[in-house]
Design a protein around this nucleic acid. Structure first.
Lengths: 240, 240
DNA sequence: GCCGATACGTGCGTCAGCGCACAGACGCGG
DNA sequence: CCGCGTCTGTGCGCTGACGCACGTATCGGC
């Protein structure tokens, strides 16, 4: 069941499991492909599994009545998708969708709940992760209120980058616009700014980061705050 | 220690405790006054207590480097202040401040943690509350992105109203502006709109709600979503 | 090597919210 | 009842983002 070329413990939560739990989980865990755009869970629906992305990135996206949307938070190899399962609510008001194709692992809902209810290290690990996620959501709220699109785009690129290996993203501006909850044209303009400044280069849905330092400079404080909080709360953070 | 005229179980989480836990807590719980503007916990600091507001309202406020601020969520008699204590992070990136003066109860951090770690009904109750709070934060992010100040003001008034008894608020427009993360003049204008429409009446920091129906109509969907989620996740919600 | 689909660029009028500056208006203490 | 501080109203120029419309470039497939 476990593919050699694809180590579950690339996911940092899985990596942080004590040996005892890891042994139990190994037989239950299942590798999955996560293609771009896949909806893991529709808003208001109950999850069948929790997901541990390894190379994929997942967005928590709120879709409004009129169709407009906004990303609430993003989950990569540092986290888990489906916290509502152990938080007790079963469902969320947001949609869970794969923002960057890749792989991950999943665990049946029932198994996850049982593990959580052992009230041991798994519980504490997951709750600390949840708090980090809460910080990310808070910061998203603040950022939406106060920062320019340029700054937000930087933050978003950096958050995505931290959850991938390498310095490239596959993302159309249209998609980014959906995530940020802004116009596609706005993203075009901001991306142009960044490109002109020599920070990124892109073409047809492929973005290459040229100057990460520069992006961090140009980003709002939100990125650093979130990153620092993940570092503080979790065993280790995605490689820079 | 317990003041007759002030029933702890006005707080809905306390009210939802099973008898066994309630008996244990009764001797530990302490009544506190919560004056307007009191900072229960500064961002990044560790809480000494968790708070259960009864008649007070508390805001989770993020204050940026440049001094601008934005409310992340609001907690009243339906909730608890200090979730980071049991989530495991000890501190939050946001400041906790009393937005509407009133009373509440508190419990020492250590006691709270021990109770949580019993991994019984208290844990599940608090986690469900936390998920409701997460929904509120998400919705704040979305609302900040997409909705007009008029709509947001309605949402904010309604959320506050749900956490108080009666139909009056004591709140200057300046304060509301800080919470919403907008200009004071903007609030003046929106408040005027609502007043002209006959929905509210106010003067010098005192707001009276005249037409709650109307406020709900004029509000964005965010209010209803949050309220519905609180209803779904928690034993009972603040009286309407 | 052409064609359609997809991705990106640009221009233009509009508007909500910002920053600033200042003017009434109410209310409390001396 | 006078005066000062607080709260609220208003005007004005500015800017970032919006909605819409259309132009251009690049890719993949037949």
């Amino acid at each position: 069941m476990i593919d050699e070329s694809h180590d579950p413990r690339t996911n940092l939560l899985l990596a942080a499991l004590p040996d005892a739990e890891w042994l139990r989980w190994q037989s239950q865990i299942e590798a999955v492909d996560m293609p771009l755009g896949q909806v893991l869970c529709e808003s208001g629906r109950t999850l069948s599994h929790v997901y541990f992305p390894t190379t994929a990135i997942v967005s928590l996206l709120y879709v409004m009545e009129n169709g407009a949307s906004a990303e609430i938070a993003v989950v990569g190899n540092e986290g888990i998708v489906g916290i509502s399962l152990f938080m007790g609510g079963e469902s969320t008001t947001s949609r869970t969708v794969v923002q960057s194709a890749g792989q991950g692992f999943r665990l049946k809902a029932k198994v996850m709940k049982d593990e959580f209810d052992r009230a041991g290290p798994v519980l504490h690990l997951l709750l600390r992760y949840t708090q980090a996620l809460i910080t990310q959501m808070s910061q998203t709220a603040v950022c939406n209120r106060h920062h320019s699109l340029d700054q937000q785009l930087c933050r978003w690129l950096l958050l995505s980058l931290d959850r991938l290996q390498g310095d490239e993203l596959n993302m159309t501006q249209e998609l980014i616009a959906n995530m940020l909850g802004v116009r596609r044209e706005g993203v075009t303009e901001s991306a142009l700014n960044l490109q002109r400044a020599g920070l990124i280069r892109y073409a047809r849905g492929h973005i290459k980061i040229l100057d990460r330092e520069g992006l961090e400079q140009r980003s709002c404080e939100c990125y650093e705050v979130v990153r620092e909080e993940y570092r503080r709360l979790l065993p280790s953070t995605p490689a820079r």
